[in-house]
Nucleic acid binder design. Structure first.
Length: 292
DNA sequence: TTAGGGTTACAG
DNA sequence: CTGTAACCCTAA
């Protein structure tokens, strides 16, 4: 009669996902102690978070393995793991790219049956919220914060500027003297009990325009998982990820073409996908990056 | 504390 | 009866 089974609510799932997006997967205790989530997750333990995250990933893996090979991209190079031996050795690569892999690990989850996605909007919002500067944060500070937690595409600065402007005009952010802050209209009581609606907002936004599928987070999670894989598994995963990135790129391109508004998101997504593909192809070609 | 294996409860 | 999700145990 102790505990029948306490099923996870969508609020708890949202808090968990937000926590992972901020602190990274595996930092369960950190997420739990974060004042932003401790309220929602007060009945859960760090082990609960871990188990829930595992379950979510399992279901995603089981159900998400089918949305590949959509248009004409059907080539699946399944010929990587064969002659590894010593060709898959540790190669220093370009030195500056050795840290990109071990960063924040956002993830996608099927709350109901739809793919929730983290986009630049949400990342920016999170950045501003996390910086928590009373008078607002400069664009450089926001960019810096995002670069700390994620890796940035080539034309990230341009995309960020466009998106900041967009968020300001749409009322989600307030710009004062070149500083940005979260619009107060969206739920923010006193500094006491912090009610986090964050993910709810994200969800609503996502359902509105899910033209560009999640890119960075998805690939990032894949990369993070590769670190704990063997060479063969990593090669296979890289092959899959490359195929996926190609699909994403195609989608992003189509989005740019179709949306006359020329969403900065699509541009950013394309850049991200390109970057990811380059990285992944590097890995696939035998340049395994291993950090001690 | 966390990751992973194993177990129990519940739904289909 | 079977599959999934929450829960439990333990090594590292």
């Amino acid at each position: 009669m102790g505990a029948p089974k306490q099923k996870w609510t969508s609020e708890e799932e949202s808090a968990l996902k937000a926590g992972i997006a901020k602190h990274g997967a595996g930092k369960w205790r950190t997420i739990l102690k974060d004042s932003e989530f401790s309220h929602v997750l007060r009945h859960r333990s760090n082990v609960d978070l871990k188990d829930k995250w595992r379950n979510m990933n399992v279901t995603v893996n089981a159900a998400g393995t089918r949305d590949r090979a959509k248009t004409s991209i059907v080539k699946k190079p399944r010929s990587a793991p064969k002659h590894e031996g010593h060709s898959t050795a540790i190669v220093p690569v370009t030195s500056d790219g050795d840290d990109e892999i071990a960063k924040a690990i956002p993830r996608v989850t099927p709350s109901s049956s739809k793919r929730t996605l983290l986009r630049l909007d949400n990342i920016i919002t999170e950045a501003v919220r996390s910086l928590n500067e009373p008078t607002g944060s400069y664009k450089t500070a926001i960019a810096n914060y995002i670069e700390e937690q994620y890796w940035t595409p080539t034309d990230f600065d341009h995309a960020l500027s466009a998106k900041l402007n967009d968020l300001t005009t749409s009322g989600k952010l307030i710009k004062v003297n070149r500083k940005y802050r979260i619009a107060p209209s969206s739920s923010f009581s006193e500094g006491r009990s912090s009610k986090v609606v964050l993910l709810d907002d994200i969800k609503r936004e996502s359902t509105r325009e899910d033209v560009v599928t999640l890119t960075k987070s998805q690939v990032d999670a894949e990369l993070a998982r590769m670190r704990t894989m063997t060479a063969e598994e990593a090669a296979a995963a890289a092959a899959r990820a490359v195929a996926e990135a190609e699909v994403i790129m195609a989608e992003a391109e189509a989005a740019v073409r179709e949306a006359e508004a020329a969403e900065a998101d699509a541009v950013a997504a394309q850049a991200v996908a390109e970057e990811a593909m380059a990285t992944l192809k590097n890995i696939r070609s035998g340049k395994m990056i291993i950090r001690a």
